[in-house]
Every structure is written in structure tokens, then in C-alpha cells.
Simulated scan of single mutants.
Amino acid sequence: MEEVRAGLVRSTVYDCDVLVIGGGIVGLSTAYAITRAAPGTRVTVLEKEPGPARHQTGRNSGVIHSGVYYRPGSLKARYAVRGAAEMVKFCAEYGIDHAVTGKLIVATDRAELPRLHALVQRGRENGIPVRELSGAQIQEYEPEVRGLAAIHVGTTGICDYVAVARQLARASGAEIRYGAEVHRVDRRPGLGVAVRTRTGDVLRARVLVNCGGLHCDRIARLTGDDPGMRIVPFRGEYYELARPELVRGLVCLGRVVGGHHDVARAGRVAAEALAGVQVGRFLGHEALLRRLAGDPHALADVGPGRARTSGLVHEVADEVVGHLAEVLAGDDGVLELFQRLRMHLLDRGDEFVEAYG
């Protein structure tokens, strides 16, 4: 039997050495890293959409995170600090729109001051340049921002992650196949994998790397693995500030522990329900990216400049339950649990947001 199997291995013809599923920034950076580390390795990337970065990579705030919030010594902290520096270097090397704007984390309530001071210590332990500011000093960085105190994080920035993804695709030297949704995966020990796409194409590879983003649990099951979990995505909604000149860089206002409520010159406001049902005010960075790219319409009034968290709680609660009704159809017990959570959101409003955001 072993001789037969060895003969099959020798006779197998592979279309590539490594097959990456997913054409977002994770999949494309994986292809890029493999070809850099092992020149001559044949890499193919399968992406179901007609182009790169069509999901999470192209639909986020565009922030280059400093790592200030992460526990010192943790992988998150180390990767964020090193990754921020490498991202800026990559953008500069390839002429990709980016800016190291820095970020203000502002305490607007006395209860937030101890947490703000803790972030100072955490940032410094992570090797991040952090400056403590009094209420009056805040206006040195942001004349329109008011608060009791703040810290300025020097390494936070913004970039065009779609352009980053495109450049990774070009620089990787990998074969990128768009419109190639994975339909079946045949995985055999010692023989590698064979993948069939929706269009009927079959590719054989020695190794498969799953970079399917929000669909990676489904891809894992196609390979025969059981990830033991199911990804339930939630949509975020963004608006642009009518007056993006109100802020110069990135600003995190209130609830300083979370760090998810950034205001940028870009000017988008978002309310998101995440896996932990976190509700917050997000301000994104689309206008800044347009301005960096020379778009004369960057300052157009395309939406409301502000949104109250409490006014969004009803919408987010319905969003949560609506998604779960679709995803968990037939699981009455779980759905009932989230219906109760919805009622808690509606009843408690901002109190819930402050407690759990």
C-alpha cells in the first residue's frame, strides 16, 4: 500500500505549490510573504470577487493602529507595533497614499482619567511615543476638540488598504484568479489538495492556506475540518463629516478603554454591532484618502456630521436580531436569548453602551 501511495505522489501533477483562498489583505500578504521567503515557490490565490479587497480589507476605517491598547508583551501588541512601522514603510516604498497623523485619546469625564493614565503606561511599555496633555494642551493638536485631558499617540496613521492589497498582489508574483469561488475541496494526506471552483476549474496544490476572512469557517468545513465555531458578521454603517476640516488627524472621544471611536479628517461616523454587541460612534477616513489622492470633491457634504449613540441603539438592536434570525434560523433558544438582549439594549440605551462598549 505504501508503495502504491508513493507512486501516486510521484505521479501527481500540481498546478501550484501553495494555493491561497482569499484575495483580501491577509491572503495577498500571505502570498507576498511566501514568495519572498521561498523564491521560486509557485503560489496561486483564489478570490471569488472580481477584484481584490472587496470585503473587510476595503470596508474599514483605514487606520494604521499603533498598538497602544494592547497588553504589553502580547502578540497583538508586538504585531501592531511592528506592523504599523512596516505598513508605513511599505506605503512609502510603493507610493501608496498614507499619512502618519497621530491620534488623540481624549477623556471627557473624570471617571475616564485613571484609564487614560493606564493607557499612557501601556503605550510606553509597548515602545510607542505617547505624550500626556492637559485640557488646554489638547488644542495644540486639535483646536476644535475639548476634554479634561488627553494623550497623543505619535505612530497612529491612515492608509489606503485597497491600494495596499493591489500592490501586494502585483509584488507577490503569484497568480491571482478573480471570480474563482471555491465550491469543493478534496484533501488527501500525502497527496495535497484539489479545489474545484464554481466555474468548474480544478486546481491541485501541495498546500492550501485558508485566508477566507468572514468565510474562513465555511472554507475550513469544505476541507473536512471542524473549527468548532461559526462566524456571524455584522454590518457597519458610515457617514462622512460635512465639515472634515474640524479635525486634523485622529481623535478618540470618550470611553478611552475601547479605543474604537476615532474621528479623522476623513469624516465618517459609524455604528457597528460586533460579535460582542459593541455599539459605538466610529468616524472614518474616506475624505482624507480622497484628499491625499487629489480628489476635488473630498469636502462635499455627503452626510450628517454627527450621530448620537443613543439614537442608534434601536437600529443596531434590530440589526443584531435581524442577522441572527437569518443565520440561526431554527435555533429558537439562541434566537430567544438575543431577543432578550435586544430588549435590554432598548431599555437601557446609553447606560448599556457605557457598561459594555
Rank of each mutant, 00 (worst) to 15 (best):
V100W: 04
A317E: 06
P233N: 08
V257F: 07
G40W: 11
Y69S: 01
G213K: 00
M343R: 14
L299P: 02
R196S: 14
E315V: 10
G154F: 10
T156R: 02
R78C: 05
C159Q: 04
A136K: 12
H297W: 10
A165R: 01
A6L: 15
E240L: 08
Y69A: 01
G330V: 06
L203I: 06
E245M: 09
A242H: 04
D15H: 15
L299C: 11
G23E: 13
H344M: 09
G254A: 06
I105K: 07
V263K: 01
M1T: 13
Y32Q: 02
E272Y: 09
V277P: 03
E181W: 08
V4G: 06
R54T: 15
D350C: 10
S61D: 05
G179K: 08
G123R: 00
Y239K: 03
K103A: 01
H183V: 08
D332G: 10
Y161R: 01
R122P: 12
Y14R: 13
V193K: 03
T35K: 12
G224F: 10
R78K: 14
V81R: 03
S172F: 04
I21R: 08
V263T: 07
R230T: 15
A307F: 13
D97N: 07
R291F: 06
V106I: 08
A317M: 05
R196T: 15
T30F: 04
R198F: 10
R218V: 10
G280E: 12
A180D: 09
L337G: 07
T57V: 11
E240G: 03
G179W: 11
R206I: 05
I231Y: 05
Q339G: 12
P114W: 02
H152Q: 01
K89D: 15
H117E: 15
T35R: 15
R268L: 15
R71I: 12
R265W: 13
R281S: 14
T57K: 10
G249S: 07
P244R: 00
V145R: 01
G27S: 09
L312P: 00
A77I: 13
D109V: 05
G127D: 00
K48G: 06
L222S: 04
A298N: 03
K48R: 15
L8T: 04
T223K: 06
G249M: 03
T156V: 13
R265P: 08
E49F: 09
R255K: 05
G51I: 00
L274W: 03
D201W: 06
I21C: 10
G7K: 14
A194W: 07
D17T: 09
R291K: 14
T101Q: 04
S310L: 11
A325C: 10
G40Q: 12
F90S: 04
A287W: 06
G294I: 09
G259S: 02
A53N: 05
I25V: 15
